[in-house]
Amino acid sequence: MIEIKHVTKVYGGTKKAVDDISLNVPTGEIIGFIGPNGAGKTTTIKMITGILNPDEGEILINGKNIVKEPLAAKKEFGIVLDNADIFLRLKGIEYLKFMADMYEVDSHLRKQRIEDLAETFEMKHALNDKILSYSHGMRQKIVIMGVLISDPNVWILDEPMTGLDPQSSYQLKEKMREHARKGKTVFFSTHVLEVAEKLCDKVAIILHGRIAYFGTLDALKAQYAHCSSLEEVFLEVVNHA
């Protein structure tokens, strides 16, 4: 569970990137975080994960405060950042070992998970190569594998579908569903409304740093019954914010 309580982030002393947002992301659900460019999605995710500190408010991950108990909180989640160009000079397998050691995953368990994940994402042949030689999609896959190797209680993803081929995109969505089925939390940002529609139990729409809507998509569509598509609904929400 992620609890965001009255969180504000101001850049440069004047620009409010996130303005007093509160959000409860429950366990066992997939929550989509939607908003136009510059709405505050990435800033919020950076605050949830401890990359940025909020100026006001607090964030709890499974009850652990990310600012006050950062290590305990970080053990609760795994994050797929929007930039997959990380540790490029490590081999895929070395990166997985690194992540597994950081999250203290048991030897037997990690071997099994590496085999499963490599099979799922068709990365078996690439694990012995440097990440530098991977395509964008493969880099994205190895980062996802690096998170899933620790099977975190909360899985946070920032624009995870970017660069993935349809098959990998499908596999990722399946993994997200499977994660939620196990009673864990999945929180991800996306621009692709169709993905949110098919995957999410609930969506949070952020506009100008404020939460404009949080709930199920069905309820949202009901509010805007005159709109024929989710895209139109989204535009309505944006225009009326």
Binding site: L96, K97, K111, K124, N128, D129
Partner: peptide, 15 residues
């Protein structure tokens, strides 16, 4: 890329 598959021994070592 080398496109070489990992051996079982390598995988065990890295795990």
């Amino acid at each position: 890329s080398s496109a070489k598959d990992m051996s079982e021994k390598q995988l065990r070592k890295q795990s």
